[in-house]
C-alpha cells in the first residue's frame, strides 16, 4: 500500500482533545502542588488567587527543607536506593542467566516459585523477617535492604529476574557456544559475551529498582528507619512523618517558622519528589523506552 493512511479530521481532533484533557488531569496534582508551594499565607486565604501566587515566595521551601533535614536525608535516600539496586543488578542478572541458559531438573519449579513470591504480599513474611533481622543485628541498618537484594529477594526482584531471563533468552545461544569453542569457561562466557549485550536490560532494571526502592515507605520505615527512628531515614520517610517533624521544628524558638499550613506541606512533598523528577527529565528517553527494550512483552 503506497498511499498514506489518512485519519479523519474529526477523529484526530477528538484524540488530541482527549489526550490533552487527560494529560491535564494527570498533571493537575503536580501543577497544584507547585503553585500552592509558592504561596504565602495571605495568598492561601485570598480566594481571588487560584493558580498564580502573588509573589515568588521561597520561604516555604526553606522551612520545609530545614524541618526535613533535606541534604542529609537526600544523601541517605540515594544510598538506600542505590546500593540495593547495584546488588539487585548483580544477583538478578546471574539468576536470570542461570534460568535462561541452562536446562536443569526442577527449573519449572523455580519459575513457579519466582512467580509465587511476586504474588505473595510482603506482609506475610514480614514479621519473621523482622525477628530474623533483629537476631542478625542488621535491623535499622542498610544491610536489611542489601542482604535480601544480594540473594535475589529484594523489592520486586521477581520482576527483575524475569526481565533478565527474557532478555538472555533472546541472545542467540550460538554466541556462547562460539565462546566455549574458543576456550571460555562458563563464567567467562557469561560476563564477557552475554553481559555486554544485555545493556538495555541493565538500564531498565537499574531505573525501576532505584525508583521502587526510593519510593518504598513501608518496608523502609519497618526495617531501616526503625519504629522509633533510630536507623537511617529517607526523603519519603521524612515526608511520611512530615507533620510531627515540622511541628517539633517549628516549636523551637530559634527557627521562627510559621505553623504548618498547606503551602509548607506541598513544599515538603515537592522537595521529596524533586530528585526523582530531575532524574526523570534527564533520563526520560531511557525511562520511556525501557519496557520496550527489555522485552517484557515479547513471548
Amino acid at each position: 500500500m503506497g498511499t498514506k493512511d489518512k485519519e479523519g479530521f474529526l477523529k484526530l481532533f477528538m484524540v488530541y482533545a482527549l489526550l490533552i484533557c487527560i494529560g491535564f488531569i494527570y498533571l493537575y496534582p503536580i501543577l497544584h502542588m507547585v503553585s500552592v508551594s509558592f504561596m504565602t499565607l495571605d495568598d492561601l486565604l485570598d480566594s481571588s488567587i487560584k493558580w498564580i501566587p502573588s509573589s515568588f515566595n521561597l520561604a516555604n521551601y526553606k522551612q520545609a527543607a530545614a524541618s526535613m533535614d533535606f541534604w542529609s536525608s537526600l544523601g541517605q535516600s540515594i544510598l538506600l536506593a542505590g546500593i540495593p539496586t547495584i546488588c539487585n543488578l548483580i544477583s538478578c542478572s546471574i539468576i536470570g542467566y542461570g534460568l535462561a541458559r541452562f536446562n536443569f531438573p526442577g527449573k519449572s519449579i523455580c519459575m513457579g516459585v519466582i512467580i509465587l513470591s511476586y504474588v505473595l504480599p510482603s506482609q506475610v513474611t514480614m514479621i519473621p523477617t523482622y525477628v530474623l533481622y533483629s537476631n542478625l543485628g542488621i535491623l535499622n541498618t542498610i544491610w536489611a535492604f542489601i542482604l535480601p537484594a544480594m540473594f535475589g529477594q529484594g523489592i520486586n526482584a521477581p520482576i527483575f529476574i524475569l526481565i533478565f531471563w527474557q532478555f538472555f533468552r533472546q541472545i542467540p545461544k550460538v554466541l556462547n557456544e562460539a565462546a566455549k569453542i574458543d576456550g571460555a569457561g562458563y563464567f567467562e562466557s557469561f560476563y564477557k559475551v552475554s553481559l555486554p549485550s544485555a545493556k538495555p536490560a541493565f538500564i531498565t532494571v537499574a531505573l525501576f529498582s532505584f525508583v521502587w526502592y526510593w519510593n518504598e515507605a513501608y518496608l523502609t520505615s519497618l526495617y531501616v528507619h526503625g519504629f522509633t527512628g533510630e536507623g537511617m531515614t529517607s526523603l519519603v520517610i521524612q515526608l511520611q512523618n512530615f507533620a510531627t517533624n515540622y511541628n517539633s521544628y517549628a516549636s523551637t524558638a530559634v527557627s521562627g517558622a510559621a505553623s504548618l499550613n498547606e503551602s509548607i506541606n506541598m513544599a515538603g512533598t515537592m522537595l521529596s519528589i524533586l530528585p526523582l523528577l530531575l532524574l526523570y527529565f534527564v533520563l526520560q528517553k531511557q525511562f520511556v523506552e525501557s519496557i520496550d527494550r527489555a522485552g517484557i512483552t515479547g513471548e
Binding site: 496534582p29 519510593n215 518504598e216 515526608l239 512530615f242 515538603g268 521529596s272 519528589i273 526523582l276 525511562f287
Partner: peptide
Amino acid sequence: IIVSGPILGML
C-alpha cells in the same frame, strides 16, 4: 516515578 504512599497521602 512519583507514586509512593506518603506522597499520594499528602496529595
